[in-house]
Design a protein around this nucleic acid. Structure first.
Lengths: 225, 225
DNA sequence: TTTAAAATATGATATTTGTCATGTAATTAG
DNA sequence: CTAATTACATGACAAATATCATATTTTAAA
């Protein structure tokens, strides 16, 4: 397995602020993990004792609502760190993580990285910054969820996936989600999600091929309200 | 004005982790500020160069939605710190803060406290912990907003205010909000908020006196879905 | 205190979204 | 490859929520 010192992924997250020595120590104790599409990485209520660094693939972070429905809180791709909160708090994790396609990750035990968090101010500040940014994004999501229609939220998630995770060679969104996943991101019933996507299709805003979605008219998506 | 070293408020926030010397330095450069009910403390888009420590009163943190409506993201009371994100990021603030009643606060310039953030690991970890907790709460709010009915959200905010901010001598919620504020917390139209509160009143779950609200039947609030 | 403005209240109606039912297409297990 | 399961799709209807109109009450300003 590749060593952290020579792994380019770390440039996308807070691990980039570790010194070469710290990295070598982390590298020595990390374990590689492979997850298949649909596999659960961890579940709400579990005690995480470390962080996962995503090397490849995509996963969703979800939270179970009291009515039994899952709500997708965040999508995480290459470079993302899962379980940051576990470094800071003794509490159990409040989210579940499920692989959306085949994933490759590294697991770094908390015990090993905690020392760096107290000794390396640059690293700490970086984690802090990332968390502050997450918080900002979370606030924005809340406002969207509260103030915008389901149709608008659906348009936004399509643009979000397009802008952040890109498309494949044929122009289809490179992250492939089920209609149920879309429903659980925008917070609506699966049927409603299906209906809205069908409508977008009729209007020529998107086209589909199986589960894959291609944005045909990005401009129109922006104007939906 | 009272000194930070002898101010009990700090026990409720991360400032408690500063050393006596650090506190004295903070105390020397802080400025006291008074805000009247309705007054704007800062607005979305402003550059904050410090944090506010709430000594007395309550304020709401809001974010303007694209449709022009304000969404209340958080209520902050005595002991709360406003503008933590400014310590970590150069970005402009993403929220506005408005006093809900007369407030007393201390403003601590970023320049003064930044040094502590890099030098005092205990303080840094404390800020980190607080932010992680905020993030968790924010996730929970998102799920609530997405999955629960307006009526249920209204019931929850009433219980939240009751549990976290208490009641006055007559049993009325000690935080007094307008119907519009309630609407903007649960993310609905003002009329809908009014209607739901009226309904609660008819059902004997709450009673009101002007804007003031008294919870008469807490148990029933829990069962609303 | 009087008056104007803002907040609260409620009806009528339109729109959005959810739920249930049912059918078809796509995947997966054997 | 076939059967069975799961995902997708759509109609019909119900429920929740928004919007507009219009009083009434409360609050704040002159």
């Amino acid at each position: 397995m590749s060593k952290c010192e020579s792994c380019i992924i770390r440039e996308f997250n807070s691990l980039k602020s570790l010194t070469r020595e710290e990295l070598m120590r982390v590298s020595a104790c990390k374990t590689g993990k492979i997850y298949k599409k649909g596999q659960v990485i961890f579940e709400e209520g579990e005690t995480l004792n470390g962080v996962y660094c995503v090397r490849d693939g995509v996963c969703k972070l979800t939270k179970l609502s009291e009515n039994g429905k899952d709500q997708v809180v965040k999508l995480v791709v290459k470079g993302g760190l899962l379980g940051k909160r576990s470094l800071v708090s003794e509490q159990k994790t409040n989210l579940s993580a499920v692989a959306l396609n085949d994933m490759e990750m590294c697991f770094i035990p908390k015990s090993e990285i905690m020392n760096d968090l107290t000794k390396n101010p640059k690293f700490t500040m970086d984690v802090l910054k990332k968390m502050a940014e997450d918080l900002k994004v979370s606030d924005e999501s809340l406002v969207k969820m509260a103030q915008k229609s389901v149709k608008c939220r659906m348009a936004e998630i399509l643009m979000y996936i397009h802008d952040n995770f890109g498309t494949d060679d044929d122009g289809y969104l490179s992250i492939v989600l089920s209609r149920k996943d879309y429903a659980s991101i925008v917070g609506t019933a699966t049927e409603s999600a299906i209906r809205i996507l069908s409508q977008f299709k009729k209007e020529g805003i998107i086209s589909t091929s199986g589960k894959r979605i291609k944005i045909e008219d990005y401009r129109s998506l922006r104007w939906i309200e």
